[in-house]
């Protein structure tokens, strides 16, 4: 159910988590319900936490951008390598938009934070750099209103739908 003018679905802690050192993967599907998937390079949460914008490289995300342009829904998973803490957010529709002022800086900062995190886990600097290189690609934002948030950290609560706390 879309949220009326009640509390936003995302709380402040979750919003901070989405902007942290997380791996982001975004999915959609085509008219034949064949899923598409791509890595995102950073995200921006609006001040009121009612809109999430994930950044996709145009050359790396061709299939999903085509599906989103056709009006298909969007799902995005955010997972922190160090803790396995994972959240999935879904939206009925993803709106493709050009990068705004400051978005490129967010992409680079998210990439750097993620690189630093996985290097602490033992990945090499050259691997981390290559992994996050598309943060410098020609990119777009995919903006959506979260309709549902799911706990996806491995464990007994995985898959649980999270409701806004009063």
């Amino acid at each position: 159910m879309p949220q009326m003018k009640s509390d936003p679905l995302l709380d402040a802690k979750q919003a901070a988590f989405l902007g942290g050192p997380v791996a982001i993967n975004v999915a959609s599907h085509d008219a034949a319900q064949i899923p598409s998937i791509a890595r995102a390079y950073g995200c921006r949460i609006s001040a009121d936490r009612r809109e999430v914008v994930v950044f996709l490289s145009k050359r790396c995300a061709q299939a999903i951008l085509r599906d989103l342009a056709a009006g298909a829904p969007v799902a995005a998973v955010f997972s922190r390598p160090k803790t396995h803490e994972t959240l999935q957010i879904k939206g009925a529709r993803g709106r493709i938009q050009p990068l705004q002022a400051g978005d490129r800086a967010i992409m680079r900062a998210c990439g750097a934070a993620f690189s630093a995190e996985i290097m602490l886990l033992g990945y090499s600097a050259s691997f981390s750099d290559a992994l996050m290189a598309p943060a410098n690609d020609d990119a777009v934002g995919v903006a959506f209103m979260p309709d549902a948030v799911f706990e996806q950290t491995p464990g007994p609560k995985a898959g649980m739908r999270l409701e806004p706390k009063p």
Binding site: A27, H29, P35, I37, A76, V77, K90, Q152
Partner: peptide
């Protein structure tokens, strides 16, 4: 490196999850 999987529900909602 963990992989990711996208699937689609009967009502047309995508789902994306990490794979060990």
């Amino acid at each position: 490196v963990p992989a990711s999987i996208a699937t689609c529900s009967p009502d047309g909602m995508p789902n994306v999850a990490k794979l060990s």
